[in-house]
């Protein structure tokens, strides 16, 4: 799917959770949101992007959330 759009959406999620004073909670918030609301093909495309493009154009907090909670974001199917 359109990678620029996925990056934009992921950054918007990052913007929201970044306001949390507790960084751990913010990272969990971001990964939890991706897990709960993103369809697996969107998630795996994002994961692949982080792996191959080093998360270019993604907010650092988003990259960090994805790296920290990677296992949760891998599709179970």
């Amino acid at each position: 799917m359109d990678m620029q759009n996925l990056i934009h959406m992921a950054n918007q999620i990052g913007d929201f959770f970044e306001a949390m004073p507790d960084r751990e909670e913010a990272l969990l918030g971001i990964s939890g949101h991706l897990h709960n609301f993103w369809e697996p093909r969107m998630r795996s495309q994002l994961l692949k992007y982080v792996d191959t493009e080093n998360g270019k154009d993604l907010k650092p907090i988003v990259v960090s959330a994805i790296r920290t909670h990677r296992s949760k974001l891998v599709s179970q199917h």
Binding site: M1, D2, N5
Partner: peptide, 20 residues
């Protein structure tokens, strides 16, 4: 029943353009 969320309407459009 699948344990993963499905596509939302705008995601369906994006996935359509993507061929999936």
């Amino acid at each position: 029943i699948q344990p993963e969320p499905g596509l939302r309407i705008p995601n369906m459009f994006d996935a359509a353009l993507d061929g999936s």
